[in-house]
Simulated assay, not measured.
Amino acid sequence: MKRLTTALVLTALTAGFAASASAADIKVQVFSVDNKATLTVTKDGQPLANYPVEIQGINAMTNTGSNVTSENGSITVTNYSNQPENVKFIVNDENGQPIVARRFLGRDS
Rank of each mutant, 00 (worst) to 15 (best):
G106Y: 10
Q83D: 13
F89L: 01
V68T: 14
S74P: 06
K88Q: 12
R103L: 00
T76A: 11
V68S: 12
P84T: 05
I99Q: 10
D93P: 04
N92A: 11
N72E: 09
V91A: 05
V68P: 03
G106N: 05
F104Y: 12
V91E: 05
S81T: 09
T69A: 13
R103Q: 14
I75Q: 04
N72S: 13
S74I: 09
E71Q: 14
N79W: 06
T76E: 11
Q97R: 15
E94I: 13
K88R: 14
G73N: 05
D108I: 03
D108P: 05
I99E: 00
P84K: 12
R102V: 06
I99C: 03
R102F: 10
N86T: 10
N82G: 07
I99H: 04
V68H: 13
G96P: 07
T69M: 11
N95P: 00
E94R: 15
S81H: 07
N92L: 14
E85C: 10
T76W: 02
D108V: 00
N79Y: 02
A101N: 03
L105S: 07
D108A: 14
E71W: 10
I99A: 01
V100D: 02
R107Y: 13
P84D: 06
T76G: 11
I90C: 03
V77R: 04
I75C: 04
E71H: 11
P98D: 09
T69D: 04
S70V: 02
I99R: 12
P98G: 01
P98F: 03
G73D: 05
V77K: 10
V91S: 07
N79T: 00
R103G: 08
Q97N: 13
N72T: 03
I90Y: 09
D93H: 07
F89A: 08
V77N: 00
S81R: 10
E85R: 13
V77L: 03
T69P: 04
Q83N: 13
G73S: 06
P98Y: 02
G96C: 03
G106C: 02
P98H: 04
N72G: 04
A101G: 07
F89Q: 05
N82A: 12
G96A: 09
N72L: 11
N86L: 07
I99P: 01
F89H: 08
A101W: 01
R102K: 15
T76V: 01
R103E: 15
D93R: 00
E94G: 12
N92T: 09
S70A: 15
N82Q: 12
